[in-house]
Design a protein around this nucleic acid. Structure first.
Lengths: 342, 342
DNA sequence: TTGTACGCGTTATCAA
DNA sequence: TTGATAACGCGTACAA
């Protein structure tokens, strides 16, 4: 049962023999090169079909020096934010006959190195990076491969020549989200950010502070907390915030995953939004199904994936392209925000 | 800026020249074949390092006839159930230096064909299928590639010789979940299933009916609904159930994604679990953070991914393996279930 | 319109 | 211990 005979795939030569022509004619016929006489071409194609011939991408890659393969790195496969992006990437890639090699770096230096090596060995034509955090050696190694790189949600490394990116304007989006809370009348607004020193976190935090400044609300460091990108950690962080002498009346979260934990920590639907308002970021699939439904900043995630892949293709074609593509975030007001308690 | 010189990768020959030896010696030195004289080996490795040499996996694959690549198909990349499984697959795969090519079939026949072709062309060493539904032609095409195939969550096609699988016992797990409701005192228990004619849905439905029979509760067809695998559709389905003359007091959902919508449709935390109990399946990451937290059947998802990849490796090594690996589901009782209203 | 010959970067088999 | 030499399956310039 478990014997997989080293299946000698039928090759171009096999069907050349069967058709009584040379293998180069077969190659041309199968590629659809017009010089081949129509009849022979059709005969060859017929034979190839019957023989169940499938061209070997590896042999072809060896000579064309292109693999029609792109590498995609993520920090955690299980981060729901990535999925729609990957989905968009895959859509465009497969439209053009490209395959996606997925790799998980875990933001672990050792694994990052392995991923880069693997991509290099496999001679991927390009790379898309969705790692939210990258080790210091990472980008340099990546760029050393001399293949185009597109980063989704910008971060350090975007300065390098070969690196392009797709991102939303985190500062502005965070500002709008925070302003929404300000306009509702909140003044004690907390920020719950991400631990890893992520670029987008820094930006969203900046947007948060901007909004406070705009409204002449003094910034209070004690209203800021950071935690790992997991709802359980957000719960803990939120509980701490709730022990403050001056409890915040609103929390702006780095993303929906954290908001999920914050919502839980706030307990029982009673207190949100009437005692505490909560705003997330990303608009993940569950945001509208929470109770209360989550006010959040929607990112066009699938579109971002498509744009990233488009950008990569244009780079592969050697076209001149913009260094960074900005997409717009949209504040979606739902039921987790309301005026502060009086 | 956008010019990627057809980077002539340094080859084994280049460093052979630099080292003043033949390319075969270089090959041996780099592979660590012991026959090479220690000094020469070290010198070669040094030179290779300095030259930034990275072996070409494609050239190697051409001769070894192995790509160290496995193809993974999913029906939708954005289904959260798949992520932890993929994560497990990736963990084990990368441990052994294998890469994962991810492809999305969308349960669309045309795309399924493209995926298979692509896998075949790329000469993947094995395939893991997580498509919840597969077209009639799909499995036959897949098996025609004569590479080992492992299906996660069994389904039609598992009879074929080359096909192995990893799955939980859906019937039993569903039975336990339903029994939990029965034991709480429910008698009007609805089942919300998946539309696509998924095998696992059929099984879970069977488990549901078993549990009813065990308790001598008559089966009522009107308490059964089916919808697409999206919370928004589950909402609609649930609203319909709520219009029944005899409203159900509990709903067993095909999975957590549907439960998410059902929870929402049941509205405002007030009615769940006191008027309606809800049970899900999968224990996705958000289940414990919902309000009320969701009672559900936990599947060891990451472990299933690891097992699937393990199984595949054993098949690749030509070992005798079990046709199906069963894992255990665990009912996790949380706050979405309670005795029916009196 | 077709065939010959060579090369892509490795591994593997012989001899030396 | 090392070096020729031949594959692997395909694309392609050149010749016929």
């Amino acid at each position: 049962m478990a014997s997989f005979s080293r299946t000698a795939h039928v090759s171009i030569k096999d069907i050349a023999r069967a058709a009584g022509v040379s293998h180069s004619t077969v190659s041309r016929a199968l590629q659809g090169v017009p010089v081949v006489k129509r009849e022979t071409a059709e005969r060859i194609q017929q034979i190839a079909l019957e023989a169940g011939y499938t061209a070997s991408a590896v042999a072809r890659s060896l000579v064309t020096r292109k693999t029609r393969t792109i590498g995609v790195v993520v920090t955690t496969i299980t981060d729901p934010f990535h999925h729609e992006i990957i989905s968009g990437v895959d859509e465009v890639a497969s439209e053009w006959g490209y395959s996606v090699i997925l790799a998980d770096s875990r933001a672990d230096p050792e694994r990052e190195i392995r991923v880069v090596r693997s991509f290099h060995e496999r001679r991927v034509d390009g790379i898309i990076v969705m790692s939210s955090r990258v080790g210091a050696l990472y980008m340099p190694m990546l760029t050393e491969m001399k293949v185009p790189i597109v980063i989704v949600n910008n971060q350090r490394g975007a300065e390098e020549d070969f690196v392009h990116s797709v991102t939303i304007d985190n500062v502005e989006a965070a500002r709008i989200a925070t302003r929404h809370l300000v306009e509702l009348g909140h003044t004690r607004i907390a920020y719950l950010g991400n631990l890893l020193g992520v670029y987008s976190d820094t930006e969203r935090f900046a947007g948060y502070r901007h909004a406070l400044m705009d409204a002449n609300i003094p910034f209070q460091a004690r209203l800021v907390a950071h935690c790992q990108n997991r709802p359980e950690d957000a719960m803990v962080a939120m509980r701490n915030l709730l022990t403050l002498p001056q409890v915040p009346t609103a929390v702006f979260c780095y993303n929906d995953l954290l908001a999920l934990g914050v919502l839980k920590a706030s307990g029982g639907g009673v207190r949100v939004p009437h005692q505490i308002s909560i705003v997330g970021f990303d608009d993940l699939f569950f945001a509208s199904f929470l109770d209360p439904s989550l006010t959040t900043v929607q990112q066009p995630k699938k579109e971002m994936g498509r744009l990233a892949m488009d950008l990569l293709f244009r780079l592969l074609r050697g076209e001149e392209v913009e260094k960074t593509i900005h997409v717009k975030g949209t504040l979606i007001v739902r039921d987790s925000t309301a005026p502060p308690p009086t």
